[in-house]
């Protein structure tokens, strides 16, 4: 029945089990891309994953690497502690927008500013998914949520925060990119960005950061297909895709010496 080689293979570091995510939820794609990069860069044996609080709280069930659960928003601080204790480890966080850009804003900013040699995977679905769809710092103006039922109002709640631009502006980040996984082309580009975000800290250049625009069909009250279309129609015009910083190409970067 099956002939020839597989045209698509799941990375070995990804547990082959059903996910707990809702139908069409792109956390599934985001975590798969992380797993693919861990495999391709042969990092699974020295990776330490810092989980966060949000729908991805069970990330440790899917990524078969050493993991620790951080309190809500604190993953970048926990990552700092892990990396300082184990400089040889490939340390990464996986966080949602409420986690990273609201309660954990200080930890995120300072981790990036210090240039911790860690990777931050930021899944921006413009809503607090796990708690039932409340307004997030990234909720679009006009977007209805359970705590802005009339739609987010810029006067009252401010504009959605553009994290990648902020992180790129900080001295300690080496790589900062925003990607989406709404089309095949974007998935392929997203994979390259995730890979670079892992490589930058491993090459001792600074922090690696990727923002992945993702759907939350359940709390957007849309079908998965409608939600996916919203990414290109509404999110990308405000949250432009692209690489906002990349010092990985530069030849020499001054940095602390790595012990032999």
């Amino acid at each position: 029945m099956k002939n020839g080689k597989e045209a698509f293979t799941l990375p070995g570091v990804l547990a082959d089990i059903p996910t707990h995510y809702c139908p069409g939820c792109q956390h599934g794609v985001a975590q798969r891309l992380v797993a693919e990069c861990l495999d391709e860069l042969a990092l699974s044996e020295k990776a330490i994953c810092i989980g966060s609080i949000g729908c991805s709280v069970f990330i440790y069930n899917y990524l078969l690497v050493d993991s620790v659960e951080a309190p809500h928003g604190r993953a970048p601080a926990v990552a700092t502690g892990v990396k300082r204790a184990r400089p040889e480890a490939a340390v990464f966080t996986y966080q949602g927008d409420g986690d990273l850009a609201s309660i954990g804003m200080a930890e995120t900013m300072h981790c990036a500013n210090r240039g911790e040699r860690v990777t931050i995977i930021f899944v921006n679905n413009t809503v607090y998914g796990m708690t039932g769809g409340q307004m997030a710092p990234t909720t679009m103006v006009g977007q209805r949520t359970t705590t802005c039922p009339g739609g987010r109002c810029a006067d009252n709640e401010g504009q959605p925060i553009k994290m990648t631009e902020i992180i790129a502006s900080l001295g300690g980040s080496a790589y900062a990119a925003r990607v989406a996984v709404d089309s095949v082309k974007h998935v392929r580009a997203a994979k390259k960005a995730v890979r670079k975000a892992f490589e930058a800290p491993l090459n001792n250049l600074g922090l690696g950061f990727v923002e992945i625009l993702a759907t939350c069909p359940t709390n957007w009250k849309m079908t998965p297909v409608q939600a996916n279309e919203r990414i290109a129609a509404e999110l990308i015009p405000y949250f432009p895709l692209g690489t906002f910083k990349d010092v990985t190409e530069l030849e020499t970067i001054e940095g602390p010496e790595v012990a032999e």
Binding site: I48, I50, P71, R74, A77, G81, V82, A89, E107
Partner: peptide, 9 residues
Amino acid sequence: NMLLGAAAC
């Protein structure tokens, strides 16, 4: 929380 991370190691 940094302490938590180092302690986890």
